[in-house]
Structures are given as C-alpha cells and as structure tokens.
C-alpha cells in the first residue's frame, strides 16, 4: 500500500486553478523530487498534503485512509519555502528551537526533560551542529540555520519529510553538505522524502522519482531515465497527466 496517495486533486485560489486533477502515489522510502516553473503549483500541492489547504475535489489517502481523519501531523517533518523569513532577532537558542518540535512528546507540563534533551543532542549531531546548542538561532549563518531546521524536523522521527526549495541561498559547499545529510537520513532511517528543487541535474541524481509540474498538472518519472530534455518535452505537453516515461 502506498504511504501517500493523491487521487484527482483539484484546488483553486479564488478563481485561478493552482492544482488540476493531480494523481500521484508515493511509496515508503521514496525520494520524490518536485520540479517545475515558478507558479506551477508545487508549494500548493505540498500545502494540500500538509493539511494547510483542503482540496476542492479529490482525496488524499495516508496508508489507505483519508488523511484528514487519520493523520498525526507531527509525523510529517516540513521545511517551508519561507523558513528563513522568521524574526532574526527572536531570542531563542538552537536547543529551544529544536526542542519545541517535541511538543507532543512533552508531559503534562510542556517543558523539556532529560530524555528529550538527549533527542535534541542526537538530532543536532546528525547535522553536525552539536556544538551550537546554546547559540542564538539568529546569530547563525543561513546554511547553519538550514541544518538546525533539518534537526528540528528529525527530532520528531517523522514518517514523511517535506522540503520546499531548501537549497535557496546556500552555497555549493552547503548544498553538498545538505545532500550528504539527506543521504545519511535516507540510508540510516529510510525516510520518505518529497523535495522541491529547481536544479534538475542535481536533484535527479539523488531522487528516485521526479514529478514535473506544469500549470497545476503533473508528470511522473523514474529519476534514473530522466533528463533535462524530458523535462522540456513535458513542458510542451498539455493534455497528458502522467507519462510513464521509462516505458517509451
């Protein structure tokens, strides 16, 4: 059974259609790349999956059950496209930021106890940030902040990880580090990942599936056979929904 299944999802903001009849199924352990031009509905589809928006038509199934009924939202780890837009003078340490995601695991009084502190330390170790526990979040570089947000998401041991353009503003080294950490997360914990990226070349080396967006519609591919030409080809198609490209 698919971990996540989207059945004919439609969604419009006011009049404008943002997601049109999208069918997509994501298996456990998949690393799915979302690519497509600006405004093609990538973030909107993610927000539908995350329950921020409700589909006008269609159904989202989580392990075969309607997501709106069965979903434990803390089992999804999310880094939004706006993640860096927080108040940079917010007086919180890395420990407090990562720890706050453990809200569900805190007891009657919502404070951190020593077993939760241990989880924070482990999550920060995963992203090589264990020495930054007591630093203020706003005093870190963009790449370091990004790693803290990965730790914040991993501290909850999520079943599904959703990353909306996490590489924006990172230099080549930080991007490499990012993919190394994601690779480690995949290898060690076999997490399911959905990631939006505009760098088709790089992402298709890491993902096992590529989903192309064009004006609210999607075309799905196995990553290995996928190339830039395929992407351009897709953009010229308008009537097709899902092309099992590898069968051509």
């Amino acid at each position: 059974m698919a971990l996540l299944e989207l059945k004919n999802i439609n969604f419009s903001y006011q009049q404008e259609k943002a997601v049109e009849n999208v069918r997509l199924s994501i298996e456990e352990g998949d690393f799915v790349a979302f690519i497509g031009p600006n405004g093609s509905g990538k973030s909107t589809l993610l927000k539908l999956i995350l329950g921020y928006l409700t589909p006008d038509k269609g159904e989202i199934l989580w392990q075969g059950q309607p997501a709106s009924d069965v979903m434990d939202w803390s089992s999804i780890g999310y880094i939004s496209q706006q993640v860096k837009e927080f108040n940079q003078s917010f007086p919180a340490t890395v420990r407090e930021i990562v720890g706050s995601n453990l809200y569900n695991k805190m007891g009657f009084i919502k404070f951190l106890n020593s077993s939760l502190e241990e989880k924070i330390a482990q999550a920060l170790k995963l992203v090589d940030m264990e020495g930054f526990m007591r630093r203020k979040i706003g005093n870190l570089s963009g790449g370091q902040q990004q790693r803290v947000f990965i730790a914040r998401l991993m501290v909850n041991d999520p079943d599904l990880i959703i990353l909306d353009e996490p590489l924006v503003g990172l230099d080549i080294k930080a991007q490499d580090d990012f993919y190394r950490i994601i690779g480690e997360i995949k290898e060690k914990y076999n997490k399911t990942i959905i990631m939006v990226s505009h760098d088709i070349q790089v992402i298709s080396r890491h993902a096992n599936r590529v989903v192309c967006f064009e004006e609210g519609q999607v075309y799905s591919h196995r990553a290995r056979e996928f190339s830039y030409d395929d992407y351009m080809y897709d953009l010229r198609q308008t009537n097709l929904r899902i092309i099992p490209r590898h069968e051509h």
């Binding site: 995350l50 999804i76 999310y78 917010f90 706050s100 809200y103 805190m106 919502k110």
Partner: peptide, 23 residues
C-alpha cells in the same frame, strides 16, 4: 503559562508551523 510554555513558545516563533508539532 507554565503548563503550555513550549506551546506559547512555538506560537511566538512560527504560528503556522506550530500545528505540525502537535500544538
């Protein structure tokens, strides 16, 4: 305030994402 300390903390840091932590 003591009981919901980290809940209020999350709302202050990012009201939108607090829901995904179970707040």
């Amino acid at each position: 305030i003591i009981k919901y300390y980290y809940g209020f903390f999350y709302l202050a840091f990012n009201e939108n994402e607090a829901r995904l932590a179970g707040v």
